[in-house]
Design a protein around this nucleic acid. Sequence first.
DNA 1: CTGAAAGCGCTTACAG
DNA 2: CTGAAAGCGCTTACAG
Lengths: 355, 355
Amino acid sequence: MEKKDIVGIKDVAKRANVGLATVDRVIHGRSGVSKKTREKVLKVIEELNYKPNMMASNLSKKKTFVLGVLLPNVSKESSYWGLPVKGVERAGKELQHYPVRIEKFLYDQASVKEMRKQILKVINSKIDGLVLTSKFAEETEILLQDCNEKNLPYIFIDSNERDEKAVCTIQQSLYESGQLAGQLFNYCFQEGNILVLFFKNIMDSEAGINKKIQGLNDFLKENDSLVKTRKYVISNFSQEQVDKELNKIFAGNENIKGVFIPNSRVGYMARYLHNNAMDRKVYLIGYDYLTENNEYLQKGAIDFLISQRPEEQGYKAIIKLFEHIVLKKNIEPEIFIPLDIITSKNYKYYLNYED
Amino acid sequence: MEKKDIVGIKDVAKRANVGLATVDRVIHGRSGVSKKTREKVLKVIEELNYKPNMMASNLSKKKTFVLGVLLPNVSKESSYWGLPVKGVERAGKELQHYPVRIEKFLYDQASVKEMRKQILKVINSKIDGLVLTSKFAEETEILLQDCNEKNLPYIFIDSNERDEKAVCTIQQSLYESGQLAGQLFNYCFQEGNILVLFFKNIMDSEAGINKKIQGLNDFLKENDSLVKTRKYVISNFSQEQVDKELNKIFAGNENIKGVFIPNSRVGYMARYLHNNAMDRKVYLIGYDYLTENNEYLQKGAIDFLISQRPEEQGYKAIIKLFEHIVLKKNIEPEIFIPLDIITSKNYKYYLNYED
DNA sequence: CTGAAAGCGCTTACAG
DNA sequence: CTGAAAGCGCTTACAG
């Protein structure tokens, strides 16, 4: 009964008085059709409101699409990047019935050399689309130029700026996440100091971090808070070294009521707070529910984590790339990831939550 | 190249020395196959690790599955139920390339009569699966019994208890959401009283609400808080009547520092707080980012909303029912929705966020 | 520039 | 109880 309602390529062909192959050529914008025929077919498609059936299309298609993934690996300092990769894998599993395959190019965040090697591998591979993160600006330029020349679609995750040529940018509002941190601190205390601690890796860009800090400062200003912030950068990643620096900082600053870690390396601070008895409650806010952070969230050393949903970012990037390439769907150019607030009382539902 | 790796029904048929139709019968457990043949085919399927191709299956299938949805409608008191229905529609749109159709049976929460009418309609319809909410326990019994007799799969959303026979139960931990509210209050103030206000409709069950309140009380107790709670039930839904009752309550209770609304009807309280100047900050926590709640969240009358992700619950219910019926996937029996904490600084990313 | 035909993997009458 | 054949809507060589 509903059969008659659904118009297929056959109906279009009949009405336009052409063969199936010609309709197919027009639909996919392939060459080898006279202008006149193309227009006729296009008109009929319009009239009949023809919509291609992707199930049939994929079934008959021989090609299996390859989606490339260029991302950092899990590192000793942070398990963060394991999560987007997990999301990528989950998406891959979900798409197993489709003609797609995922090819991963992972690199150690600490090694620029290895990263360059992976970039070259991507350039020389025959992928149909790419997922990457924009964290390492300079080195990516050449890759992006290559993508644009080859007309290769790509999607950013964990991005902090828009790229007009990307299919889509998956990001979180950094400024507003800073504002949110400010609001949460403001519920906890109304005077004193907030220590802002940036654990900086070689490849970390400071621009994004500063947007978060700006958000925090602006919130305090807008709300006439008496609380002041003070920023420090720490680039030595051994806990002993961190402890030493923190001892100095805390010795000099009598009234630290809160600590804001603008990335996911909250663990260093949490360990410090947990191991060094303070004479007052120090509120700690940072990012992401990584394994190492969860422990201290439960122990009460971390009060709030703002989640960047890393797993979901990886998952979504693949799904969107797939929809763009295989299903030819329209993709919204910017996807903003919600700013989840995680505490010891709700973290468990974010851990293995998969949409 | 990969073609050879993928085993299809044809490979199974050849190896088992039977026809395609027979393999098909075995795969779907249909009758008309001798025990011996069935076993032989099953063995080959095992050996070859055959996995059916759902794209092909759906393409050749004539039947279009009908997914029934029995849910409350938006009402004057609350726009809550508009959101699950929106989620249902979003899922429907996403599944438009599949042989599924959604049939909605919506009822007014205020009218038991109308609800019964819709239940009867469901019973007499020829649907292939059902999404419903368990809010109205007694009246549903007969419907569920009918489903079980007909072997009709169903999924609950917004549920507060497990049903062994349901394909899946989508829910939020009520107890822990109460705990979370307690934790948030505890960051804001450490002494005084919390007013717990239950705006109760005819069809609302009090059991779920009490679990939330229990969670709140337990949190305070476990943390040796000096804060006490006091519960009131309000069943008259006009703002004037509510205001009158609140005037009485606030006149009698000198030290109310916080108000907890254990459902999404936070608007009444927010309007009261917004229109009646208080001599101190009164922290307000409730549920869900409905249009009417957002306004007061932004105005600062509501501090925290715990989201039950109503849109996502509707969406997910349809997707899971679809996966169960059409793709024959295994569905996890319990899906716990995360306890999102929403403030004026992050609400906007939850508004139109669709996974 | 164009179309008839075979095929993607599965399902569904139909005939035995 | 069993199997050959047609068909789901689209794509892809191939021949003209």
